[in-house]
């Protein structure tokens, strides 16, 4: 195994009864990488993270983290892992400071010993250090949970959906913190259902139904979309969607905010033809432009392809 690899999954499968949560998954994550697993609920992200963090045994396959086997070497491995589970991990009846001391104590260290690593994050909640964790706002709890997962200076940090249910502003702030943390050289693995967060990662794996559909840099994923994509807008978005779906050359049409993203089955069709079709359908203020696909466009494209292959 290359010395450069932090996490390696080889043919990991996990079943619960007749449900397959993870279906023959393999990947390598490099040391120091900020790596994202992106997919909806039920994709298998949490199961995968529990296997990485030694809390669950894989059914088949081998998972190693920093060269240690997650099944055989779990005791050694737990010392170098930091884990922030999706459900809340703090002790609600302990204060902010007590939580941090407790988690440091478990790993036989003190908050002071590794303060430098958590300073950027913890200093934001330090003014409330005597407040019970249960009384903190969502954003502050998240910062405390991250501080607690970091306080023993882990080599690998695993964050399971840290931004789920978090508002748009706090999400951006959280990713800014991860970006700064990344510079300390720690390997960071994050899962999220928000497709727009992909661009914050060095590489991402797009997951659906226990499988990885694609694994690459966000740029490469967008470049592999492989078709022309158009953003269309008129005064009546709802009618525009149904009119575009009825348009013969249309392959896919999905709403994206005030625009509809359209790909064509017949790529020889000119935008002028689309405009005259929409004018004939009575639309006004028609705007159409060729755009770069987002990771969300790519994800939907892969979902459609996967389900049509399965049906065959």
């Amino acid at each position: 195994m290359s010395a450069n690899i932090s996490i390696q999954a080889a043919n990991i499968t996990k079943r619960y009864g007749d449900k397959t949560a993870l279906d023959d998954i393999s990947f390598d994550i490099a040391k120091g990488e900020l790596f994202g697993f992106i997919g909806p609920d039920g994709a298998g992200k949490t199961t995968l993270f529990r296997i990485i963090t030694t809390l669950l045994k894989p059914g088949n396959g081998i998972m190693t983290v920093e060269g240690l086997d997650t099944v055989k070497d779990y005791i050694k491995l737990r010392k170098i892992l930091g884990y922030m589970p999706g459900r809340f991990s703090l002790y609600q009846d302990l204060t902010v400071e007590e939580n941090l001391k407790f988690f440091a104590g478990i790993f036989k260290t003190t908050p002071e010993a590794n303060y430098e690593l958590v300073k950027d994050i913890y200093s934001q909640i330090e003014p409330f250090k005597d407040r019970k964790a249960g009384k903190l706002s969502g954003g502050m709890k998240q910062k405390l949970a991250l501080s607690c997962a970091l306080i023993h200076k882990p080599e690998v940090l695993v964050l399971d959906e840290p931004t789920t249910g978090v508002d748009a502003v706090s999400r951006i702030e959280f990713w800014e913190m991860l970006g700064r943390l990344r510079r300390s050289g720690i390997t960071i693995v994050v899962s999220t259902p928000y497709m727009d967060e992909a661009s914050r990662c060095d590489r991402v794996a797009l997951m659906q139904n226990g499988k990885i559909m694609s694994i690459d840099t966000p740029e490469a994923i967008r470049n592999n979309y492989g078709r022309d994509l158009f953003a269309v807008k008129t005064d009546d978005t709802y009618r525009l969607l149904s009119d575009l779906r009825q348009y013969k050359p249309t392959r896919t049409a999905f709403p994206f905010g005030e625009h509809i993203h359209v790909s064509l089955a017949d790529e020889s069709v000119k935008t002028a033809e689309i405009i005259s079709y929409l004018e004939a359908a009575g639309h006004s203020n028609i705007h159409i432009s060729k755009i770069e696909p987002s990771v969300e466009d790519c994800f939907m494209e892969m979902m459609s392809t996967e389900s049509s292959t399965r049906e065959k």
Binding site: G39, P40, D41, F254, P255, F299
Partner: peptide, 12 residues
């Protein structure tokens, strides 16, 4: 938050 965690096609 009816669409939290839902895949992008189902969300639409």
């Amino acid at each position: 938050e009816p669409t939290g965690g839902v895949d992008p096609i189902t969300r639409r």
